[in-house]
Simulated assay, not measured.
Amino acid sequence: MKPMQTIQDLIEEIKLRVVWWALFVFCVTYFLSHSSKSMWMNIPISILLVSALRILLNNVEFHWKVQRPVRPQSYLSHLEKKQLSVNDPRLSTGPPPPRWKRKIGSPIVEDAMRDFIDKILKDFVIDLWYSE
């Protein structure tokens, strides 16, 4: 190879890289200009972002996650996974407590709330509406 031809190839490669860098910097600057008034203020930030992205893409190797083949399950193994434990709350005989009781968790407060609700029902519903 002639030395002049390799220098020409090097110059062509530099031109190509400068054009690509300018295009990427312009694109990033344009997208950043939606959040600020001046595109000129975003040029240094976009140069840093494009440089960081280039360094990241050169140093980090990205892979697609390999999908493992799914083995067909036997019906027995399927049932074993669905089997409930002995202490499961769904197997208890009593109905679950109301939602408001689960949030409070104090018998004294529950009794006070029950008395308060009964008093409101008695005063406003039973005595007012059904008094006649």
Rank of each mutant, 00 (worst) to 15 (best):
P3A: 14
P3N: 14
T6N: 03
T6I: 08
D9Q: 04
E12R: 14
E13M: 05
E13L: 03
W20V: 11
W20I: 14
A22F: 01
F24L: 12
V25H: 13
C27Y: 04
T29D: 04
F31A: 14
F31I: 06
L32H: 03
L32R: 11
L32I: 02
L32S: 06
H34K: 10
S35Y: 09
S35I: 14
K37P: 08
M39E: 14
M39R: 08
M39H: 05
W40M: 12
W40L: 15
P44H: 08
I45E: 14
S46K: 09
L49S: 10
V50E: 01
A52V: 11
L53P: 03
L56I: 05
N58Q: 04
N59H: 07
V60W: 01
V60R: 03
K65D: 00
K65F: 00
V66F: 00
R68Y: 00
R68L: 00
V70Y: 00
P72E: 09
L84K: 12
S85K: 04
S85W: 09
S92Y: 12
G94A: 15
P95Y: 10
P98Q: 13
W100T: 04
R102G: 08
K103I: 13
K103W: 10
K103T: 14
I104H: 02
G105V: 01
G105Q: 07
S106K: 07
P107L: 03
I108M: 03
V109T: 13
M113T: 06
F116N: 03
I117T: 05
K119F: 12
K119L: 14
I120N: 01
L121K: 14
L121Y: 11
K122H: 10
F124S: 07
F124H: 12
V125K: 06
D127R: 08
L128E: 14
L128G: 06
S131A: 08
S131I: 11
